[in-house]
Design a protein around this nucleic acid. Structure first.
Length: 292
DNA sequence: CAGACGTGGGC
DNA sequence: TGCCCAAGTCT
């Protein structure tokens, strides 16, 4: 797409965002960088709507990185509740500790520094830099990838993993000035979340439907390699989730031998789940018992 | 680079 | 009813 048309599309999407965006609590101007960082950790692979409640409770309890770092990581895992991927709680706790120990308790501004924090990858570093500090940073999440793939590549879905070509394309879309770039990052994500969705995109309501290459091509179906899916039922992951869920609601934990004996399915799987949780630091041994 | 890693809502 | 999918990161 030509630069001029690209700028017009950015303008249209940003304008759409101004009157359509959801009123997510961490989008309020007074939100601290730490609070935005927490929202980004919680939103990794988790629908944003499910994050709002836990996010409020988390910040109520730990309003600063220092306050979280002062507690054991098990408190973070317990407070994570049922958000899923509980190792994110561990990483958020480790990140808070790193902020305290290496950045004077203040969330760093630069992508390079942010990137050093546990649990902060390319996406999250860019998101914090952009949303918390208004920087011009690449924010390439699943929504933006899909939006740009449709808009500018005329394909239904992006590749299974982010490619260098995609990053290059996204850089070309990033407006020159920081405030517009920051707004574009949020607006393009929102467009992907609300309109340009994976299933049943609402092209009729899209503010840039006239500029979309995929729509112009007649919305051709995906034809690349099969998209990655996730099996869950019966997997070790499910067993870990079940075990951790029980530990979360049972502060005194369980006798290991009893636990393994009463496991409803394959005992070997229970053993793997337990070992995994222990080695990941999500659960702990206390004599012959397991606790959070 | 493929695979591991939770959980729940929508269709 | 299952399958798809969600503001990814790490190994």
């Amino acid at each position: 797409m030509e630069p001029g048309q690209r700028r017009a599309v950015v303008r249209a999407v940003n304008q759409w965002y101004a009157h359509t965006a959801r009123d997510l609590p961490w989008r309020r101007v007074e939100t601290s960088p730490w609070a935005i960082m927490v929202s980004e950790f919680m939103a990794q692979q988790t629908p944003v709507a499910r994050v709002v409640g836990p996010w409020r409770e988390w910040l109520d309890r730990w309003p600063t990185p220092d306050s979280l770092a002062a507690e054991p990581s098990s408190a973070a895992v317990a407070a994570w509740g049922r958000l899923g991927y509980p190792r994110r709680a561990l990483r958020l706790h480790a990140a808070a500790t790193a902020v305290r120990d290496h950045f004077g308790g203040e969330v760093p501004h630069s992508v390079e520094e942010l990137r050093q924090l546990p649990g902060v990858g390319d996406y999250t570093a860019g998101a914090i830099a952009s949303f918390a500090f208004g920087a011009r940073a690449l924010v390439l999440d699943t929504n933006v990838r899909r939006v740009l793939t449709r808009l500018d590549v005329a394909r239904q879905f992006p590749a299974n993993s982010t490619t260098a070509a995609e990053r290059h394309l996204a850089m070309g879309w990033l407006p020159d000035d920081a405030p517009t770039a920051s707004r574009w990052a949020q607006a393009s994500m929102e467009l992907g979340a609300l309109v340009c969705t994976a299933a049943n995109p609402a092209c009729d309501e899209c503010p840039v439907r006239a500029d979309c290459a995929w729509l112009a091509a007649g919305r051709p179906a995906h034809d690349g390699p099969p998209r990655r899916t996730q099996a869950y039922a019966g997997t070790d992951r499910q067993a870990r989730g079940t075990l951790l869920g029980a530990l979360r609601t049972t502060p005194e934990g369980f006798e290991v031998s009893v636990l393994l004996q009463h496991w409803p399915t394959d005992p070997a799987q229970a053993s793997r789940a337990l070992d995994g949780l222990l080695s990941d630091g999500l659960a702990h041994r206390e004599g012959t018992r397991v606790i959070l």
